[in-house]
Amino acid sequence: MLEAKLEQAALLKRIVDSIRDIVQDCNFECSESGLSLQAMDNSHIALVSLLLGKDGFTDYRCDRSISLGVNVGALTKILKCGGNDDVLTLRAEDKPSVLSVMFEDSIQDRISEYNLKLMDVDQEHMGIPDTEYSASVTMPTAEFQRIARDLHTLSDSVEIDVNKEGITFSCDGDIGAGSIVLKPSSNIDRPEQSINVEIVEPVTLSFNLKYLNHFCKASGLSNQVTLRLSGEAPLLVEYKLPNGFIRFFLAPKIGD
């Protein structure tokens, strides 16, 4: 059986919030080592990969691997019933039909428990190859979120260009064009504000801004986000989690 306790429900709430625009139904895979998820969006242009290692939980026990088929919208509704600061416990039997979600508010001595009906989710599990990326850029999540939001007011797509000078986001839409240039910088007092650019060779690719804005829903999970680009691979947008990560992959726009 699975029994997994998080000190703060906010972590799972934020994780589920950050994937619910992309994924409708998915399997949460629970194993001895932790909880993971891999799912594609309906249009098969983006893929989400989540890992929450067992050390990220206050208590974690999973005797044998369990697959929890979940409707993400339904899970969102149940998670909204708990407070951000509540202790959250997930429980499931070995062949579960429901996932039990318990919230404990220690200040008010309030315990609430909900059962989420599980479903069979037919999903192919794909391996993600180790990839040598041409460029990696780490920047503040708030900055990336602002860029994706601002450029989306002008256009549906963004061109990302990385070279040794820095990273440029630019777009050209019906009402006009825009661009933002970020140069590498290090901030010793506030390292989370630093911008780090690692480059093997310059790369320029275009992406759909709708998806980048969906990915930015994960901004509350980490101060920094890493973008990895290569001509031969989808864009990787990575947010580090306590003992894990949430990674979004997005195919570049082809043509136009």
Binding site: M40, S43, H44, I45, A46, L47, M126, G127, I128, P129, E232, A233, P234, F249, A251, P252, K253, I254, G255
Partner: peptide, 14 residues
């Protein structure tokens, strides 16, 4: 469709 193919090709290529 071409973007879908690219994503699927990338993940199946292992």
């Amino acid at each position: 469709p071409t973007e879908q193919a690219l994503l699927q090709r990338f993940f199946e290529h292992i």
